[in-house]
Each structure stands twice: as structure tokens, then as C-alpha cells.
Design a protein around this nucleic acid. Structure first.
Lengths: 189, 189
DNA sequence: GAAATTATTTGCCATATGACAAAAACTATT
DNA sequence: AATAGTTTTTGTCATATGGCAAATAATTTC
């Protein structure tokens, strides 16, 4: 829980009472490898924070291919934003790639934080901005490069992740086939 | 200016006084095709809203290639978020693709809106969320497809944009060469 | 409106990546 | 420890896309 508070305090000041309130509304939780945090067709009703582990966002293309759109690891908030904000069914999945320890906020509690803590919206805005910038920085360069360069950039941006995620997930994130990624890895080392 | 107010009111309610205050802080502005709204190396100090025209975000890769990372058209806010939020020099450019009519907020005025209008932060948060979701929805599907499919998806997502942007910009957005895009277009029609 | 500049198309060839299938290396389960 | 299941690697071949250069078309400038 301290991890969470410490993370939030980077984005704005909070007094002891406010911190207590946040802790009250937060719930510790866990997911085993492969379990889903939220699923396509359902409305996402919670916001997560990763204490330990890796999660991914994924979906299925019209050809039935499973595609990973994003990875996240420790010390990050995550949410299926479109579904959560607009209360519409999600089009994708949020899945644990490894066993995960999480902190979870229900939508009602998340709303209460906004209603109760002066400045909370601004903090959320900053967290959101930062997440957005990071995501875009990770995804943008992928398109314009060949597969080997994409993989090398992935290694730079996610230095600690390579050994924690299956090759097939990573391949679908990079937009290449598992075979190709396997060959690329061979060529590099 | 009504375009702007109407757009904002989608995201939250504002009284007449608040609307007046926003109008006061907003400034009409224009850019000619090719001109920059913000530039690499400089700190982005304004937020824009497109009344008419198309803008793009672009940058130069380490091989000197010019790469378009995003297009935006009418009825959208845009800002070099990382530079603006953190007051650090930008790494990219925001450029007018066509002649543009804009509404511009200086950083100080933008800040004043936040300080003065109760609920403004929440509205910004919603606008930001929506923009983020849209951007991700546009970019994510591109990676996993071949060039022809990427172009077709672009046509779907940006139905009105194709004839307004140069082929070379679009090619760099899709991550292919101008020659390839030219051939793809030929094959489709 | 002619000349100069810039943008797009086309041709040719090389090569990275995909598709499919089989083999090998891991992992999990009893 | 043996089996079954899954994931990763490797092989072969086909093809989409890139690189480069030249030709054509469109746009800008004087």
C-alpha cells in the first residue's frame, strides 16, 4: 500500500487524512497468470494498480488473431479507459501475464475519491497524461521501423520485461509472427 | 468560438459566466500550410483547438527520416502534452498540414481556467481520456496488419482526410515508403 | 504563363517477413 | 519419472515492401 501512496504523492500533495481515505477505499487483490482483470463484452468497473507482476491489454482481430496492444508492470495504474469512463462494454481483455499483486479501486470508490479529495482530479489528470505520453512514446516508433529495430526498441523501453513475457505475446505486440521474432532473437545474440 | 463552447459542453455543464470566462481567455489564431504550432527544442506553451484545417504531429528519426505520428482535424484539442505538462523542450513538431483556423490558449490562461472554473479539471480529464482512447484506437490496429490493410483502416478511421494530406505524410504515418503507398492506392482502385 | 521546384508514379532488383509444417525444447500433471 | 500439452525453433518457399533512380505530374514562384 505504501507503494501506491508513494506513487500518487509524486503527482500532488495530500495530507494524512486524505491518504487514510485513499487507503480505506483501496483493496488488495491478486491474479494468477492468465486470469483476466477485465474482459471483452463486460463493462470495466475497476481501476488497478500493479504492486507486483505484469499485465497486458489484448484483443482479437477480425481474423481471430490474438493481439497484445500493451504491457504494464509494477507501479502503474491501469484501466480499460473507454469502457470505464463511458460505461460501455469493453472490446478487449486485460490479462495477467505473470502472477500479480494488485490494488484495486471499484468505480464507486474511485468516484468517491474524486468527490472527497480536493485536487484529486488534477492528480488523476497528471497520472493520465503521463501514462498517455509513455504509451505513445512506446507505440509510435514501432510503426516506422523494421522488425529487428522494433524489437531492439522494445528492449530499451521495457528493459526488465523480456524474460517475463512469452514470446508469442511479444510477437503480437511487435506486429510480427512468433517465428520471425525467434529468428530475430537468434540473429542478435 | 461557438464551435469550441459546444465541444466543451459535451463534457460537462457550464454556466453563462463560466462560458464567458473561457471566451475571454481564448484567442483566435491562424496558421498557413506548413507553419509550425510548436517545434522541437522549444517548450510548448499553448493548447490549440482546430476550427478548420488539419494538423499533424511529426518528428525526425535517428536516421533523419521525417515521421508523422498523428493527424488531427476539426473539433479537436491538441497540445504537445509532455512538453506542456512538464515544461520540458519538445522532441517533435506540431505542424499545419493545410491552412488552419485555430483557437489558442496560453499556458497561463489555461491554468487560470483550472483555478477559476469548478469542474474544469474534470472536463479536461474527460477530453483527455477521449483523445487518448481515440488515438490508441487509431494507432494500435495498424501494427499488426500489412500495408494495404493499414491504408484501408486509415481510410475508415479518417474518412475525410485522405484528400487533404500529402501522400508522403500519410506514408510516414503508415510506416511505409511513398512509393509503396502509391502502388497500394493503384491496386485498390 | 514559363520556369523551377516539389510531389507522385513507375521500373527493377534485393531482401525481410509471412505462411505453413515439422522438429525440438520446455512445462505441467499425475 | 513418464506422458501429454504447450511453446519455441527451424526449414522451405512465396511475396510484400524497401532502396534507388528515372520519368511524369502537380504546384509554386517570379
Amino acid at each position: 500500500m505504501e507503494m501506491l501512496i508513494e506513487y500518487i504523492l509524486q503527482f500532488g500533495n495530500l495530507n494524512q487524512q486524505q491518504i487514510g481515505f485513499i487507503s480505506q477505499k483501496a483493496q488488495e487483490s491478486a491474479l494468477k497468470k492468465g486470469e483476466y482483470f477485465s474482459e471483452a463484452g463486460k463493462i470495466a468497473r475497476k481501476v488497478g494498480f500493479i504492486l507486483d507482476g505484469v499485465i497486458r491489454f489484448c484483443y482479437y482481430s477480425n481474423t481471430g488473431e490474438e493481439i497484445t496492444s500493451y504491457f504494464m508492470d509494477e507501479n502503474n495504474f491501469f484501466v480499460d479507459l473507454n469502457s470505464f469512463d463511458n460505461k460501455i462494454p469493453s472490446t478487449g481483455y486485460v490479462q495477467a501475464v505473470t502472477d500479480c499483486k494488485l490494488i484495486v479501486f471499484s468505480q464507486e470508490n474511485w468516484q468517491e475519491l474524486s468527490n472527497t479529495i480536493v485536487g484529486w482530479d488534477k492528480i488523476v489528470q497528471k497520472i493520465l497524461s503521463k501514462a498517455m505520453v509513455e504509451k505513445i512514446d512506446k507505440i509510435n516508433p514501432l510503426l516506422s521501423e523494421d522488425a529487428t529495430t522494433r524489437y531492439l526498441k522494445f528492449l530499451e523501453k521495457y528493459p526488465k520485461l523480456t524474460n517475463r513475457i512469452p514470446l508469442s505475446y511479444l510477437a503480437s505486440y511487435l506486429g510480427i509472427t512468433p517465428s520471425s521474432l525467434s529468428r530475430i532473437r537468434k540473429n542478435i545474440s
